[in-house]
């Protein structure tokens, strides 16, 4: 299945105005982690928080909804959240943990849960893994190169970054700039080019903007646990939802992009294998 195994797909957005103001799209990750914290489904969450360098995130353990909200918004470079999971359990004493992860990170986490060779008493602490759709990721220096050199904006002026409608967008206080995605191609890390997972197929819940209108996100619930937590949040009024069939551009676009990633990267995998290079997939 091009979107992985799932229970339900809806279009949704957080109803909280504060979350809407800071979130990338529908505020699903922020809203769901904050809800899970407040309902004590989790005691803390590993999220991509700010560092002392603009737009260079650092994994952090958030213990309150305020800290979750402070980490809202997509950062288009590495935040190795997986490395903080053990610290969250050992040093913060969190017994029920949530986190947000891109597909490759969900793979590291899920492999650790099925085969915890050297990882002690962590696999069973993860209550909520929210996966986010991901086509590719950029080293920080790549991001800096095309934003400051190609678009002519220094990183500290950037208020928001976004990918959509075939373009990479940068919002400053008084400007909206964009470059076509083909100009960012070649700047992504090459490890992304063998990845066959666009829609975080191993998340409890997966989400991203694609398929939904501006300000909304497409939410895919996958595991029993993820489906139940998302539904509780909807029932509690944290999110408003629309049937995915009723929104534009809809599921077709999500399926198209997922299929494109699989097809393109399968080609790279085949080429690599022909050269005798290892590929685990």
């Amino acid at each position: 299945m091009v979107l992985g195994t799932y229970k339900e797909i809806v279009s949704a957005r957080a109803t909280d105005k504060q979350i809407q103001k800071v979130s990338q799209d529908g505020g699903i990750v922020t809203g769901l982690l904050a809800f899970a914290l407040e309902e004590k489904i989790i005691e803390g969450a590993v999220v991509a928080g700010p560092s002392d360098v603009f737009w260079k995130p650092e994994p952090m353990v958030a213990m309150s909804a305020d800290e979750i909200i402070a980490a809202a918004g997509t950062k288009y470079t590495f935040s190795p959240n997986v490395m903080m999971l053990k610290k969250a359990v050992r040093q913060y004493g969190i017994e029920k943990l949530g986190t947000v992860a891109i597909p490759c990170q969900t793979m590291g986490i899920r492999k650790m849960q099925s085969y915890p060779f050297g990882v002690r008493f962590l696999a069973d602490k993860l209550e909520l893994l929210i996966g986010i759709y991901c086509m590719e990721n950029f080293p920080y220096a790549s991001l800096e190169t095309f934003i400051s050199e190609k678009m002519g904006v220094s990183m500290e002026m950037v208020e928001k970054m976004d990918i959509g409608k075939g373009k990479f967008w940068v919002y400053t206080q008084d400007e909206v700039l964009s470059i076509p995605l083909k100009e960012t191609h070649g700047y992504e890390q090459s490890g992304c080019n063998v990845c066959l997972d666009y829609v975080a197929e191993l998340g409890d819940v997966s989400t991203g903007s694609v398929g939904s209108p501006d300000g909304w996100s497409t939410v895919i619930t996958r595991t029993d646990g993820g489906d139940s937590i998302f539904k509780q949040a909807v029932d509690a009024g944290v999110f408003e939802t629309k049937a995915i069939a009723d929104v534009k551009p809809g599921l077709d676009l999500l399926q198209k992009l997922s299929a494109q990633k699989k097809e393109k990267n399968q080609k790279t995998i085949d080429e690599r294998k022909a050269m005798g290079l290892p590929v685990p997939f």
Binding site: M84, L85, A101, C104, Q105, R272, L277, P278
Partner: peptide
């Protein structure tokens, strides 16, 4: 070196 790393952080988490 084999162009496979994505910077996920699993190795750091796993290191004992």
């Amino acid at each position: 070196n084999k162009a496979l790393c994505t910077g996920c952080g699993t190795c750091v988490m796993a290191c004992q």
